[in-house]
Design a protein around this nucleic acid. Sequence first.
DNA 1: ACACACCCCTGGAAGC
DNA 2: TGCTTCCAGGGGTGTG
Length: 289
Amino acid sequence: MPELPEVETVRRTLEQLIVGKTVDGIEVLYSPLIKRPLDDPETFRETLRSETIQAIKRRGKFLIFETDRLSLVSHLRMEGRYALKTKDDLPDKHTHVIFRFTDGTALHYRDVRKFGTFHLFSRGEEMQSAPLLPLGPEPLDPGFTLDAFIRMLRGKTTKLKPLLLDQHFLAGLGNIYVDEALFRACLHPERPANTLTRKQKTALYESIVETLQKAVDSGGSSVRSYLNGKGEMGMFQLQIQVYGRQGESCPNCHSPIRKKKVGGRGTHYCPKCQPQPRRRSGSAVRKSM
DNA sequence: ACACACCCCTGGAAGC
DNA sequence: TGCTTCCAGGGGTGTG
């Protein structure tokens, strides 16, 4: 399940592999992935023909392939992957889109779950429309400061886990890194966001930024079959402390790590290091600022 | 503002 | 062994 660090790793890999290449033709083998233009894979294919890839950017978990005239926005969702092949390589049963280039190479998009999406825009238009427009700030941008984060939290009564997963609140975190960031900040996933002390908000901010940055530096996490565009594994899974480790002992206190559903998502945490929020007592809520 | 159910889809696990 | 059923998971949408 690619999250920000994995998508950033794919971006960097594809940047090396396909920038400067010119599209010779596109094959759409499973057209429901093409969300814009909707129900019109023919226009999708025709519009992209002869375009040259100028840059590959990222916004949250979205990749953006830029040409002179167009922006192609790609989301990998659970299992989307890119691989550069030659023109003679045959697609396997899970390859749904093929970008053929004039130099005889071909970029295969493979996605077992068929959850991935493609949105095609005129260049520049993509930032003014869904799915990119409603995204929250980029956690690794210099503009995402502690003060900004504290302002964002103001008035939020949602539990931390669903809040941090909400891409409209903050772009790029997914299930793995939310669990890791909450663990590192010693915060329970069901803690209402507006009950954090200033110190806890700071700890959460720092753990989000540090966890994501370290994961980017490690080339992402290879859990559940994630590979970058060159078929290489990331290494951050070696630093994962709670995700997928239910029943194992907490690296801090050796209590067994627990798994429960929070906001409909499998959530991993240490019950001792991340204590359960106290139930609403009915008494005055302590000030959080 | 927030919570939750449902849908998309398939492979792997669990149950029988 | 082989069949059926259940379930995860990002994000959009719809309902309460």
